[in-house]
Amino acid sequence: MGLLTPTTWDLTGRVTANAPVSSGLLRLDVELPRSVTFEPGQFAMLNLTGAGQLVFRRPFSILASDGRTMSFLYRVVGRGTERLADLEPGEAVDCLAPLGKPFAAPDAATPPVVILAGGVGLPPLHAWLSRHGRPGDLACFGGRDGGDVPWSLLSDEWRVSVDRDVDIPAGRQAHHGLVTELALSELERDGDPGPRLVMACGPTPLLRAAAMLARDRDWPCLVSLEEHMGCGYGVCKGCVVPVRLDGPGDSGWRNANSCTEGPVFDAADLDWERFGAHHATGGAA
């Protein structure tokens, strides 16, 4: 097994900012003892220190890394994210990063990209667009409502959709409906858009819709999965997702570690029928 990623650092940093950027999303900035490079799509395993320490760290996609500061965007959903939200500037955070396979950088053969980001699925795709975006790429963000959308992070190149058409700030626009519908209406406005690469991160229904949209058009599609994790660095098998076996006509499947073989997967490699039954029912852990 060779080295697949930049060196992963296990560091204790200090919170420099931890504040809401929308009604549901918070941005966390952590100053680390050294600068750490990452590729968009990679994630960090975060934990509190001392009495607040969790048995397992929690995975969060890296939004940005600027000098020694690494930034995250998160939503409070349970014990760990509640504790994260209570952190004050100056408090310590354990950070193991970067981890996982990124969204690849484009090359000359990469078609224009369609980005579909839902909620806390924004960070990896925001990072990708900032670093690798090219003219002709289309970036779409889906939020719950206008209040949930982190407008300050979304430059004008981002198109926005909302489930509920309320609290849209003056001067901004949002499509009422699914983010995949928004993307299609933008793409097909001037007729056949030609081949695209779809890149998606967000709730499982969004990922399924993105994969379907791409499959129907024979477009390649990359999805970033937010599977439950234990270690985040490939040693426990607590994060597996079913992928198809390679052989032509092969109906078999195997488990892949989403922390080391993912979290970004080619949608065509995933066994969607087996994937994520536990996510539909709200899961556990």
Partner: peptide
Amino acid sequence: SGCFAYGLTGHDIAAQ
């Protein structure tokens, strides 16, 4: 057993 795989992961892990 079971908590450090085979001692091998895809990552080169470092600390200060």
